[in-house]
């Protein structure tokens, strides 16, 4: 069939190439119009000037300068920007570690402990269904459990663990991290599960026959071969948590700062160039984390 197609000559193939490009055109237009162009605009406008009612085309670095104003001089005390980024990084790191552990163990269970395909599909769907419901609802669903008079507090008081309600359960860093894990653990489960499904079972049998323990099989076969899934899942979780302002807002009781929230607030005051400069720094930070992470994994493999 391939030979026959080739024998039609170059023109035929060119037409096919163009029809492929044409087929992708509507998709490409949306991605360009609503992603590539807006992203370029963000970078461009981050160098613009603004006053209280309009944005002014310019090429200045004031917006960046304002973000880091006094930051180096005041070290070791943290300025607002550094403190905010550090707080976001802390959330990223803790959420990443927890979701990675959960995602890996859940995928491991689904892939190697459930033996019938039917059961695998059912249990996998069971994990994915919450992903298709509202994030806000999943956030507020913690209120009856963690609130001042919530289930956890009343239970602890009833069995005499504490005398007064524990305050840090809700609208705190704890509840923010809990919500992140609750919302995004699935983003780890799916890619890691996908990678594990591709692992050739005969490799594991061979390891077993050669006398490897479960732990050795895990560390020298399953974990290295799950690496692509682990990286994809990590990138998802890291970028979502890094740019978040909604979960931190709702679960942190609007008290905890985040980069996304700074951008959000600046936009409500129509300070678009300032918001754009913050957005550019947010993207750069996120890219650096992703880059560092993939490198880290690479280097350890080299050793």
């Amino acid at each position: 069939m391939k030979v026959a197609a080739d024998s039609f000559g170059g023109i035929m193939i060119d037409v096919k190439k163009h029809s492929a490009a044409l087929l992708s055109l509507p998709f490409a237009l949306v991605i360009f119009g609503f992603f590539v162009v807006p992203l370029c605009l963000v970078i461009m406008v981050s160098f613009w000037d603004y006053n209280s009612y309009s944005i002014i085309p310019d090429f200045i670095f004031t917006n960046y300068h304002d973000i880091f104003y006094g930051c180096v001089k005041s070290l070791p005390d943290l300025c607002t920007s550094f403190a905010t980024y550090l707080s976001s990084l802390k959330f990223v790191f803790i959420t990443w570690v927890i979701t990675l552990i959960i995602g890996f163990l859940v995928a491991l269970f689904l892939c190697f402990c459930v033996h019938s395909l039917q059961m695998q599909i059912v249990l996998f769907l069971l994990c994915t269904i919450p992903f298709w419901t509202s994030n806000v609802i999943r956030m507020i669903s913690w209120i009856p459990l963690l609130g001042r008079n919530g289930l956890v507090n009343s239970t602890m008081q009833n069995i005499g663990l504490t005398d007064s309600p524990v305050e840090w359960l809700l609208y705190s860093e704890f509840s923010v991290i809990l919500a992140f894990v609750h919302l995004y653990a699935l983003f780890m489960v799916v890619p890691i599960f996908n990678s594990m499904l591709r692992i050739d079972r005969s490799l594991i049998e061979a390891a077993h026959d050669a006398g490897a323990s479960s732990l050795q099989t895990l560390t020298s076969i399953i974990i290295p071969l799950s690496r692509p899934g682990i990286i994809i899942g990590s990138i998802f979780v890291i970028t979502i948590v890094m740019g978040d302002f909604i979960t931190i807002g709702v679960m942190g009781g609007q008290q905890i700062p985040s980069v996304g929230k700074i951008i959000n607030v600046e936009m409500t005051y129509l300070q678009f160039p300032a918001a754009a400069a913050n957005a550019v720094i947010l993207i750069i930070t996120t890219l650096m984390i992703i880059f560092a992470m993939t490198k880290l994994v690479d280097i350890r493999k080299e050793l």
Partner: peptide, 10 residues
């Protein structure tokens, strides 16, 4: 994977 707030802003 670009943070949603950035796309929204753009």
């Amino acid at each position: 994977i670009v943070p949603s707030i950035v796309i929204s802003l753009g």
